[in-house]
Measured scan of single mutants.
Amino acid sequence: MGFKLLSKLLVYLTASIMAIASPLAFSVDSSGEYPTVSEIPVGEVRLYQIADGVWSHIATQSFDGAVYPSNGLIVRDGDELLLIDTAWGAKNTAALLAEIEKQIGLPVTRAVSTHFHDDRVGGVDVLRAAGVATYASPSTRRLAEVEGNEIPTHSLEGLSSSGDAVRFGPVELFYPGAAHSTDNLIVYVPSASVLYGGCAIYELSRTSAGNVADADLAEWPTSIERIQQHYPEAQFVIPGHGLPGGLDLLKHTTNVVKAHTNRSVVE
Rank of each mutant, 00 (worst) to 15 (best):
Ser16His: 15
Phe26Ser: 13
Thr253Glu: 00
Val45Asn: 04
Ile84Ser: 03
His260Ser: 13
Pro221Asp: 06
Arg110Glu: 07
Tyr68Trp: 05
Val124Pro: 03
Thr86Asp: 00
Gln228Trp: 11
Ser139Lys: 12
Ile17Lys: 13
Pro239Trp: 00
Leu81Arg: 03
Glu219Thr: 09
Gly163His: 05
Leu156Val: 09
Leu159Ser: 02
Pro190Tyr: 06
Gly245Ser: 06
Gly105Leu: 07
Asn149Leu: 14
Arg120Gly: 04
Leu73Glu: 01
Ala66Tyr: 15
Lys251Phe: 10
Gly123Ile: 03
Leu97Thr: 04
Ala215Ser: 10
Val42Gln: 12
Val187Tyr: 03
Gly240Thr: 00
Arg110Ala: 13
Asp214Ser: 08
Lys102Asp: 13
Thr60Ala: 12
Ala192Cys: 04
Ser264Asp: 13
Ser22Val: 13
Gly72Ala: 01
Ala90Gly: 12
Ala179Gln: 02
Gly78Arg: 10
Gly32Ser: 10
Val212Gly: 08
Thr114Val: 01
Asp29Lys: 10
Gly246Ile: 04
Thr60Val: 15
Val146Leu: 14
Thr261Lys: 12
Ala51Thr: 12
Lys4Asn: 13
Gly32Ile: 09
Glu233His: 13
Ile74Asn: 05
Arg110Trp: 09
Pro232Lys: 13
Ala59Leu: 05
Phe174Ile: 05
Trp220Gln: 02
Ala15Leu: 13
Ser31Cys: 07
Glu157Gln: 14
Thr93Gln: 00
Ser205Trp: 07
Met18His: 13
Thr140Asn: 04
Ala179Lys: 02
Ser160Met: 12
Gly158Tyr: 05
Trp220Ser: 01
Asp216Val: 09
Thr86Phe: 00
Gly158Leu: 06
Leu127Glu: 00
Leu5Glu: 14
Leu159Lys: 02
Asp164Gly: 08
Thr253His: 01
Val75Cys: 03
Ala25Lys: 15
Gly131Leu: 06
Leu156Lys: 03
Ser56Gln: 15
Pro138Asn: 09
Ser160Asp: 14
Ile104Thr: 05
Gly245Ile: 02
Val132Asn: 02
Ser70Phe: 05
Ser264Gln: 14
Ser181Arg: 02
Gly148Val: 04
Ala165Met: 15
Val166Asn: 06
Leu159Arg: 03
Gly198Gln: 05
Phe63Ala: 11
Glu172Phe: 03
Gly123Glu: 04
Gly240His: 06
Phe168Pro: 02
Val124Glu: 03
Gly32Trp: 10
Ala130Cys: 06
Leu249Met: 07
Ala179Pro: 04
Leu195His: 06
Asn184Pro: 01
Val28Asp: 11
Phe116Leu: 05
Ile50Glu: 03
Thr109Glu: 07
Arg46Trp: 09
Gly105Phe: 04
Pro69Arg: 09
Ala234Thr: 08
Ala90His: 10
Tyr48Thr: 09
Thr253Pro: 03
Ala98Asp: 11
Gln235Tyr: 08
Arg128Trp: 07
Tyr175Met: 03
Thr93Asn: 00
Ala209Trp: 06
Pro221Arg: 07
Val266Ser: 15
Glu39Lys: 12
Ala94Asp: 10
Gly123Leu: 04
Tyr48Leu: 13
Leu83Phe: 03
Asp64Leu: 10
Val194Phe: 04
Gln229Phe: 11
Pro190His: 07
Thr60Glu: 05
Leu6Trp: 10
Gly169Trp: 04
Pro35Ala: 08
Glu225Tyr: 14
Glu219Asn: 09
Asp29Thr: 10
Val187Asp: 04
Ile224Gly: 01
Ala213Ile: 12
Tyr188Ala: 02
Leu5Ile: 15
Ile20Cys: 10
Leu97Asp: 00
Ile100Tyr: 04
Phe3Ile: 15
Leu96Gln: 02
Pro69Asp: 15
Val237Ala: 03
Thr254Gly: 10
Leu47Arg: 03
Ser22Thr: 12
Asp183Trp: 00
Ala51Ile: 07
Glu44Thr: 13
Gly245Asn: 03
Asp125Phe: 05
Val194Pro: 03
Val132Cys: 02
Ile20Lys: 15
Ala179Phe: 05
Asn262Cys: 06
Ala111Trp: 03
Thr182Gln: 11
Leu127Asp: 03
Val112Trp: 04
Ala209Ser: 09
Val45Ile: 09
Leu13Lys: 14
Val121Gln: 02
Thr109Lys: 14
Phe168Arg: 02
Leu250Ala: 00
Ile84Phe: 13
Tyr68Glu: 11
Val257Asp: 02
Thr254His: 14
Ala165Lys: 14
Ala234Gly: 03
Arg142Tyr: 12
Ala95Gly: 08
Tyr34Glu: 08
Ala200Phe: 03
Phe26Cys: 11
Ala129Lys: 12
Trp55Ala: 01
Ala130Ser: 12
Leu24Val: 14
Leu204Met: 13
Pro107Ile: 08
Pro244Glu: 02
Glu101Ile: 06
Ser56Thr: 15
Val187Ala: 12
Tyr135Leu: 00
Tyr175Pro: 01
Pro152His: 04
Ala59Cys: 07
Glu39Ser: 12
Ile40Cys: 05
Lys8His: 07
Tyr196Asp: 03
Ala95Val: 11
Ala179Gly: 10
Val237Met: 00
Gly198Trp: 04
Val124Ser: 08
Val11Lys: 08
Ala259Lys: 13
Asn211Asp: 13
Thr86Gly: 01
Arg128Ser: 12
Lys258Trp: 09
Pro232Leu: 08
Tyr231Leu: 00
Ile74Met: 06
Trp88Tyr: 00
Asp164Cys: 03
Gln228Ala: 13
Ser56Met: 15
Gly43His: 09
Ala133Gln: 14
Pro35Glu: 07
Gly53Thr: 13
Ser223Met: 01
Val54Met: 06
Ser70His: 04
Thr86His: 01
Thr36Gln: 12
Ala165Cys: 07
Ser160Trp: 10
Asp164Val: 07
Cys199Gly: 02
Ala87Gly: 04
Met1Phe: 02
Pro35Met: 08
Thr36Trp: 14
Thr222Arg: 12
Phe116Cys: 04
Thr153Tyr: 13
Pro232Gly: 11
Ala218His: 13
Lys4Cys: 09
Leu81His: 02
Pro190Ile: 05
Gly72Val: 02
Ile238Met: 07
Ser27Tyr: 10
Ser160Gln: 13
Ser181Asn: 01
Ser16Arg: 10
Tyr202Thr: 09
Asp52Trp: 09
Gly89His: 00
Leu195Glu: 00
Arg142Thr: 13
Ser27Phe: 10
Phe3Lys: 15
Leu185Cys: 03
Gly72Asn: 02
Ala94Asn: 13
Gly105Gln: 11
Asn71Gln: 05
Asp77Leu: 02
Pro244Met: 09
Ser191Tyr: 11
Ala95Leu: 15
Ser31Gln: 08
Gly169Asp: 06
